[in-house]
């Protein structure tokens, strides 16, 4: 077990180093952009998984990203907030709103929770479209300020955004990992397995479910804020229902049961459309097909692949041995 832990630690260090090298030596804006997209989606899919630890499959994520993006953009544009403060407020506000809607939503369990969480996306998108005076309505926002420079660092190049997002991603993953392996994470998992039993040993299951939902919401809002200052333009439907479904697909395809699952899922499924350009217009279809194959054939997700292959090899080796013997 501890050798596996060491291997995991080593692999993480190598991956981080590789990403730093990419940032230092890759200059192509397109490739850097793809990397930035991957890192954003890694954080989103991982935060969705954090919510899922407590047994809740949320489809509210797009709404929280939209909320974070518009909050950060508007605070910086209309109230002259420093972009960094705006970004933080965006995350905190998305977390708070998650907390507020979490109480009514968690009254419903399991698939019923999932069903009602969809509402949130629609309400946020509708509100942004209708509140034209503030949000620019359907035409969106332009010229959102880039992050303020400091210590001589200017946020103009893709490279600078790459490193900013790298730091955001690493910090977010570190926090989520620390939560998961803590007593809090254990409590989430306990609630997922048997919520009546958890309640009977004095665990405030509603409180912990809302906590998971709020932490997930915080990271969704943070990524939304980053996106606003990175792309510098927003439109209300960018993070709608479809976007939310994609985040869910990253998580499920990678594997919701393991910390690495959403990371793998978000990475592969962001790279796939880029390398398979000719299939571009069929991408949603391809995604759906992959999702269904995974659910039918490998419900634990791609993270389970090595183990399955291992078992398969061992079995064929054994069959061959049997035939030989």
């Amino acid at each position: 077990m501890s050798s596996r832990k060491a291997a995991g630690f080593g692999a993480t260090i190598l991956l981080v180093l590789a990403l730093v090298l990419v940032g230092l030596f890759v200059k192509g804006p397109y490739i850097l952009h793809v990397f930035i997209l991957i890192m954003m989606r890694v954080v989103l899919a991982s935060s969705l998984r954090l919510i899922n630890l407590s047994g809740q499959l949320s489809l509210a994520h797009g709404g929280l990203v939209t909320l974070g993006a518009y909050t950060s953009a508007l605070l910086a544009m209309k109230l002259g907030f420093s972009t960094w403060l705006a970004l933080l407020v965006a995350g905190v506000l998305a977390g708070l709103v998650s907390c507020l809607i979490g109480f009514p939503f968690t009254r419903l369990k399991g698939i019923y929770f999932t069903m009602v969480s969809i509402f949130f996306v629609q309400i946020i998108v509708l509100t942004v479209q209708q509140w034209r005076g503030l949000t620019g309505g359907a035409s969106g926002l332009y010229n959102i300020p880039r992050p303020d420079g400091f210590w001589g660092i200017e946020f103009k190049s893709k490279t600078s955004f790459f490193f900013l997002m790298l730091i955001v991603m690493l910090a977010s993953l570190l926090i989520m990992w620390a939560i998961e392996r803590s007593r809090v994470g254990m409590t989430f998992l306990g609630i997922r397995q048997a919520d009546s039993l958890a309640e009977s040993v004095g665990i405030n299951t509603t409180g912990f479910k809302v906590l998971a939902f709020s932490i997930g919401g915080f990271f969704a809002g943070l990524v939304g804020g980053f996106y606003a200052h990175y792309v510098s333009a927003l439109d209300p439907t960018a993070f709608g229902f479809l976007f939310t479904i994609y985040i869910l697909i990253y998580m499920i395809v990678g594997g919701a049961g393991a910390f690495a699952g959403p990371i793998i899922g978000a990475t592969l499924l962001t790279v796939l459309p880029e390398v398979a350009r000719p299939l571009e217009s069929y991408m949603p279809f391809v995604f759906a097909a992959i999702l269904m194959l995974i659910i039918f054939l490998m419900p634990e997700g791609l993270v389970g692949l090595p183990q399955r292959l291992n078992r398969l090899f061992r079995k064929t080796a054994k069959d061959q041995a049997d035939v030989a013997g």
Binding site: L248, L291, I295
Partner: peptide
């Protein structure tokens, strides 16, 4: 039917079906 008793997986499948139907009609 294969996912009776696994409501979460059935729900995710139905999300996949949304994409499938929309894109078939789109095509």
């Amino acid at each position: 039917r294969p996912f009776r008793g696994k409501p979460d997986q059935a729900l995710v499948l139905s999300i996949g079906l949304i994409l499938v139907f929309q894109n078939i009609v789109l095509a």
